[in-house]
Design a protein around this nucleic acid. Sequence first.
DNA 1: GCCAACGTTGGC
DNA 2: GCCAACGTTGGC
Length: 159
Amino acid sequence: MACWLLKTEPDTFSLSDLAARPAQTEPWDGVRNYQARNFLRDGMHTGDEVFIYHSSCALPAIVGIAEVASEARPDPSQFDPLSDYYDPRSDPANPRWVLRDIHYQRHLRRPLPLAELRQHAAALTGFALLERNRLSVMPVASEHRSLILQLSEHRDARV
DNA sequence: GCCAACGTTGGC
DNA sequence: GCCAACGTTGGC
């Protein structure tokens, strides 16, 4: 089973917001980057594990785990002129952007801050979160996943 | 709020 | 198809 990381701005939609949704599930809309779209549409499979990362906030950090809960389908917001995610260039007969339902699983025992992850840069070589700031959907290698889970189990940051 | 990184657009 | 200009992301 593959593992992924999704970014979200907690002021807009946090992991706790996801946990509070009906069925703890939300259509993950608004992805408007082609590489991210390709991961979402072609790379992911239902049941895959997803780390949720909070960006553009006081403590940028991986905060919890969710699950891919649907196949990819067209993101309706691309056709809504009132939406922030409206894309007038997307053809309804051939939609440009997709989404998947994301289902809450759990919060990590503690948030795992970006700054702490950077302290493990050697072990996390190739992890797009540290190397490609703008990607909002990215794969997580199994050895990186293991380290993240291990670090998150410690009560405090340590080296 | 600043600004570096970097993806996208569009003229040629 | 190149590449400069532009816009956005996101840490700090």
